[in-house]
Amino acid sequence: MRRPLGIILPILLLIVWEIAAQSINNQFILPRLETVVPVLLAPTVDILGTGSLVHNALVSLERVGAGFLVALAIAIPLGVGMGWSQRFDAIVDTTIQLLRPIPPLAWGPLAIAWFSVGINSMVFIIFLGAFFPILLNTIDGVKSIKKTWVEVAQTLGASERQVLSKVVLPGASPTIWTGLRVGFGIAWMCVIAAEWLPGTTSGLGYLTLYAYNFGQMHYIIAGMITIGIIGIAFDFLFRSVEDRWFCWRGLER
Protein backbone atom coordinates (compact mmCIF):
# COMPACT_ATOMS: atom_id res chain seq x y z
CA MET A 1 0.00 0.00 0.00
CA ARG A 2 3.00 2.32 0.58
CA ARG A 3 4.01 2.54 -3.08
CA PRO A 4 0.63 3.50 -4.56
CA LEU A 5 0.30 6.15 -1.85
CA GLY A 6 3.80 7.44 -2.55
CA ILE A 7 3.05 7.93 -6.22
CA ILE A 8 0.16 10.34 -5.61
CA LEU A 9 2.29 13.33 -4.63
CA PRO A 10 4.64 13.17 -7.67
CA ILE A 11 1.62 13.00 -10.00
CA LEU A 12 0.05 15.91 -8.16
CA LEU A 13 3.31 17.82 -8.48
CA LEU A 14 3.34 17.21 -12.24
CA ILE A 15 -0.22 18.55 -12.51
CA VAL A 16 0.66 21.60 -10.42
CA TRP A 17 3.77 22.10 -12.54
CA GLU A 18 1.81 22.11 -15.77
CA ILE A 19 -0.92 24.41 -14.44
CA ALA A 20 1.68 26.77 -12.99
CA ALA A 21 3.73 26.70 -16.22
CA GLN A 22 0.67 27.57 -18.26
CA SER A 23 -0.44 30.40 -15.99
CA ILE A 24 3.07 31.88 -15.57
CA ASN A 25 3.69 31.51 -19.31
CA ASN A 26 7.43 32.17 -19.03
CA GLN A 27 9.64 29.23 -19.88
CA PHE A 28 12.56 30.80 -18.01
CA ILE A 29 10.67 30.45 -14.73
CA LEU A 30 8.99 27.14 -15.50
CA PRO A 31 9.00 25.45 -18.89
CA ARG A 32 5.94 23.43 -19.82
CA LEU A 33 5.89 19.68 -19.40
CA GLU A 34 5.40 19.19 -23.13
CA THR A 35 8.78 20.81 -23.83
CA VAL A 36 10.58 18.67 -21.24
CA VAL A 37 8.96 15.27 -21.81
CA PRO A 38 10.06 14.92 -25.47
CA VAL A 39 13.67 15.49 -24.38
CA LEU A 40 13.36 12.68 -21.82
CA LEU A 41 11.65 10.41 -24.32
CA ALA A 42 14.50 10.84 -26.81
CA PRO A 43 17.50 10.14 -24.59
CA THR A 44 19.74 9.21 -27.52
CA VAL A 45 19.26 12.44 -29.46
CA ASP A 46 22.08 14.98 -29.42
CA ILE A 47 21.52 18.12 -27.31
CA LEU A 48 23.23 21.35 -28.43
CA GLY A 49 26.20 19.45 -29.81
CA THR A 50 27.02 18.13 -26.34
CA GLY A 51 25.83 14.56 -26.95
CA SER A 52 22.71 12.76 -25.84
CA LEU A 53 21.34 12.32 -22.31
CA VAL A 54 22.46 8.69 -22.32
CA HIS A 55 25.97 9.56 -23.47
CA ASN A 56 26.36 12.29 -20.87
CA ALA A 57 24.89 10.12 -18.12
CA LEU A 58 27.45 7.40 -18.90
CA VAL A 59 30.27 9.94 -18.85
CA SER A 60 29.12 11.24 -15.46
CA LEU A 61 28.73 7.70 -14.09
CA GLU A 62 32.22 6.79 -15.22
CA ARG A 63 33.64 9.77 -13.35
CA VAL A 64 31.62 9.12 -10.23
CA GLY A 65 32.60 5.45 -10.37
CA ALA A 66 36.29 6.31 -10.51
CA GLY A 67 36.09 8.83 -7.67
CA PHE A 68 33.96 6.47 -5.60
CA LEU A 69 36.38 3.56 -6.02
CA VAL A 70 39.35 5.69 -4.99
CA ALA A 71 37.41 6.91 -1.93
CA LEU A 72 36.44 3.36 -1.02
CA ALA A 73 40.00 2.08 -1.43
CA ILE A 74 41.38 4.71 0.93
CA ALA A 75 38.51 5.26 3.35
CA ILE A 76 37.82 1.63 4.32
CA PRO A 77 41.39 0.67 5.35
CA LEU A 78 41.83 4.04 7.07
CA GLY A 79 38.48 3.68 8.82
CA VAL A 80 39.28 0.13 10.00
CA GLY A 81 42.62 1.42 11.35
CA MET A 82 40.99 4.32 13.14
CA GLY A 83 38.20 2.21 14.54
CA TRP A 84 40.54 -0.55 15.72
CA SER A 85 43.45 1.40 17.17
CA GLN A 86 42.66 4.20 19.61
CA ARG A 87 46.18 5.50 19.24
CA PHE A 88 45.96 5.75 15.45
CA ASP A 89 42.54 7.36 15.83
CA ALA A 90 44.00 9.98 18.18
CA ILE A 91 46.70 10.84 15.63
CA VAL A 92 44.48 11.11 12.56
CA ASP A 93 41.09 12.21 13.87
CA THR A 94 41.80 15.94 14.35
CA THR A 95 43.06 16.27 10.77
CA ILE A 96 40.02 14.44 9.41
CA GLN A 97 37.66 16.63 11.43
CA LEU A 98 39.41 19.76 10.12
CA LEU A 99 39.11 18.70 6.49
CA ARG A 100 35.61 17.24 6.69
CA PRO A 101 33.50 20.44 6.74
CA ILE A 102 35.13 21.86 3.59
CA PRO A 103 32.64 21.46 0.72
CA PRO A 104 34.24 19.41 -2.09
CA LEU A 105 33.64 22.12 -4.68
CA ALA A 106 35.66 24.63 -2.66
CA TRP A 107 38.66 22.53 -3.70
CA GLY A 108 37.91 23.32 -7.37
CA PRO A 109 40.61 25.96 -7.95
CA LEU A 110 43.24 23.84 -6.21
CA ALA A 111 42.05 20.68 -7.95
CA ILE A 112 42.65 22.34 -11.31
CA ALA A 113 46.06 23.58 -10.26
CA TRP A 114 47.12 20.18 -8.86
CA PHE A 115 45.46 17.71 -11.20
CA SER A 116 44.90 19.98 -14.23
CA VAL A 117 41.62 20.20 -16.08
CA GLY A 118 39.75 17.05 -17.01
CA ILE A 119 38.93 13.76 -15.35
CA ASN A 120 41.61 13.84 -12.64
CA SER A 121 40.44 17.01 -10.95
CA MET A 122 36.82 15.85 -11.19
CA VAL A 123 37.71 12.47 -9.68
CA PHE A 124 39.47 14.33 -6.86
CA ILE A 125 36.33 16.33 -6.07
CA ILE A 126 34.09 13.26 -6.24
CA PHE A 127 36.57 11.39 -4.07
CA LEU A 128 36.30 14.11 -1.42
CA GLY A 129 32.53 13.86 -1.50
CA ALA A 130 32.43 10.09 -1.08
CA PHE A 131 35.42 9.77 1.26
CA PHE A 132 34.05 11.12 4.55
CA PRO A 133 30.73 9.24 4.75
CA ILE A 134 32.53 5.98 3.96
CA LEU A 135 35.29 6.72 6.47
CA LEU A 136 32.99 7.75 9.32
CA ASN A 137 30.69 4.78 8.82
CA THR A 138 33.64 2.41 8.68
CA ILE A 139 35.04 3.81 11.94
CA ASP A 140 31.61 3.57 13.51
CA GLY A 141 31.09 0.03 12.23
CA VAL A 142 34.41 -1.18 13.62
CA LYS A 143 33.96 0.56 16.96
CA SER A 144 30.50 -0.88 17.48
CA ILE A 145 31.69 -4.47 17.04
CA LYS A 146 30.77 -6.39 20.18
CA LYS A 147 33.73 -6.84 22.49
CA THR A 148 32.52 -10.37 23.21
CA TRP A 149 32.95 -11.41 19.56
CA VAL A 150 36.54 -10.21 19.52
CA GLU A 151 37.26 -11.76 22.89
CA VAL A 152 35.79 -15.10 21.87
CA ALA A 153 37.95 -15.12 18.74
CA GLN A 154 41.04 -14.19 20.75
CA THR A 155 40.35 -16.84 23.37
CA LEU A 156 40.11 -19.39 20.59
CA GLY A 157 43.60 -18.34 19.51
CA ALA A 158 42.92 -16.03 16.57
CA SER A 159 45.75 -13.72 15.56
CA GLU A 160 45.05 -9.98 15.24
CA ARG A 161 45.01 -10.35 11.48
CA GLN A 162 42.44 -13.14 11.73
CA VAL A 163 40.34 -11.13 14.15
CA LEU A 164 40.33 -8.21 11.69
CA SER A 165 39.48 -10.21 8.60
CA LYS A 166 37.12 -12.81 10.14
CA VAL A 167 35.36 -10.81 12.84
CA VAL A 168 35.81 -7.06 12.52
CA LEU A 169 35.39 -6.56 8.78
CA PRO A 170 32.35 -8.84 8.39
CA GLY A 171 30.86 -7.45 11.59
CA ALA A 172 31.29 -3.87 10.42
CA SER A 173 30.21 -4.54 6.86
CA PRO A 174 26.53 -3.51 7.24
CA THR A 175 27.58 -0.11 8.60
CA ILE A 176 30.31 0.20 5.97
CA TRP A 177 27.72 -0.58 3.32
CA THR A 178 25.52 2.23 4.63
CA GLY A 179 28.58 4.47 4.31
CA LEU A 180 29.02 3.36 0.71
CA ARG A 181 25.38 4.10 -0.04
CA VAL A 182 25.54 7.60 1.46
CA GLY A 183 28.98 8.15 -0.10
CA PHE A 184 27.76 7.23 -3.54
CA GLY A 185 24.80 9.58 -3.19
CA ILE A 186 27.07 12.48 -2.26
CA ALA A 187 29.56 11.52 -4.99
CA TRP A 188 26.74 11.65 -7.52
CA MET A 189 25.83 15.15 -6.37
CA CYS A 190 29.49 16.16 -6.52
CA VAL A 191 30.01 14.96 -10.08
CA ILE A 192 27.35 17.39 -11.22
CA ALA A 193 29.13 20.24 -9.45
CA ALA A 194 32.56 19.02 -10.58
CA GLU A 195 31.42 19.18 -14.18
CA TRP A 196 30.93 22.91 -13.75
CA LEU A 197 34.71 23.31 -13.53
CA PRO A 198 36.30 24.96 -16.56
CA GLY A 199 37.56 22.70 -19.28
CA THR A 200 34.72 20.19 -18.97
CA THR A 201 33.03 19.28 -22.24
CA SER A 202 30.58 16.54 -21.27
CA GLY A 203 28.51 15.04 -18.49
CA LEU A 204 25.04 15.74 -17.13
CA GLY A 205 26.27 18.60 -14.96
CA TYR A 206 28.04 20.21 -17.90
CA LEU A 207 24.99 19.73 -20.10
CA THR A 208 22.70 21.57 -17.68
CA LEU A 209 25.12 24.46 -17.25
CA TYR A 210 25.74 24.69 -20.98
CA ALA A 211 22.02 24.81 -21.74
CA TYR A 212 21.80 27.69 -19.25
CA ASN A 213 23.95 29.86 -21.56
CA PHE A 214 21.26 29.70 -24.22
CA GLY A 215 18.34 29.90 -21.78
CA GLN A 216 17.27 26.34 -22.69
CA MET A 217 15.41 25.60 -19.47
CA HIS A 218 13.68 22.49 -20.82
CA TYR A 219 17.08 20.84 -21.30
CA ILE A 220 18.11 21.90 -17.81
CA ILE A 221 15.02 20.34 -16.27
CA ALA A 222 15.36 17.19 -18.39
CA GLY A 223 18.96 16.97 -17.18
CA MET A 224 17.87 17.45 -13.56
CA ILE A 225 15.25 14.73 -13.86
CA THR A 226 17.81 12.35 -15.37
CA ILE A 227 20.22 13.13 -12.52
CA GLY A 228 17.44 12.40 -10.04
CA ILE A 229 16.37 9.14 -11.67
CA ILE A 230 19.93 7.80 -11.78
CA GLY A 231 20.43 8.83 -8.16
CA ILE A 232 17.29 6.95 -7.10
CA ALA A 233 18.24 3.90 -9.16
CA PHE A 234 21.61 3.57 -7.48
CA ASP A 235 20.17 4.17 -4.04
CA PHE A 236 17.67 1.40 -4.75
CA LEU A 237 20.49 -0.92 -5.81
CA PHE A 238 22.47 -0.26 -2.65
CA ARG A 239 19.34 -0.75 -0.54
CA SER A 240 18.42 -4.06 -2.13
CA VAL A 241 21.93 -5.39 -1.47
CA GLU A 242 21.56 -4.18 2.09
CA ASP A 243 18.22 -5.97 2.49
CA ARG A 244 19.54 -9.19 0.97
CA TRP A 245 22.98 -9.56 2.54
CA PHE A 246 22.93 -7.47 5.64
CA CYS A 247 19.47 -8.17 6.98
CA TRP A 248 21.08 -10.09 9.85
CA ARG A 249 22.03 -6.80 11.44
CA GLY A 250 18.57 -6.30 12.83
CA LEU A 251 18.36 -9.93 14.00
CA GLU A 252 21.30 -10.25 16.38
CA ARG A 253 20.85 -8.57 19.70
Partner: peptide, 19 residues
Protein backbone atom coordinates in the same frame (compact mmCIF):
# COMPACT_ATOMS: atom_id res chain seq x y z
CA UNK B 1 26.62 27.13 -34.82
CA UNK B 2 27.84 23.56 -35.17
CA UNK B 3 30.60 24.07 -32.59
CA UNK B 4 28.41 25.88 -30.06
CA UNK B 5 25.15 23.97 -30.46
CA UNK B 6 25.60 21.07 -32.89
CA UNK B 7 23.50 23.19 -35.30
CA UNK B 8 20.59 22.32 -33.00
CA UNK B 9 17.51 24.39 -32.28
CA UNK B 10 16.92 26.68 -29.37
CA UNK B 11 13.44 26.48 -27.88
CA UNK B 12 11.90 29.35 -25.96
CA UNK B 13 8.34 28.45 -25.05
CA UNK B 14 6.48 28.40 -28.34
CA UNK B 15 9.40 29.83 -30.29
CA UNK B 16 11.99 27.56 -31.86
CA UNK B 17 14.97 29.01 -33.69
CA UNK B 18 17.87 27.34 -35.36
CA UNK B 19 21.30 28.03 -33.88
Amino acid sequence: ADWLAGKGNFTYGNVTVSS
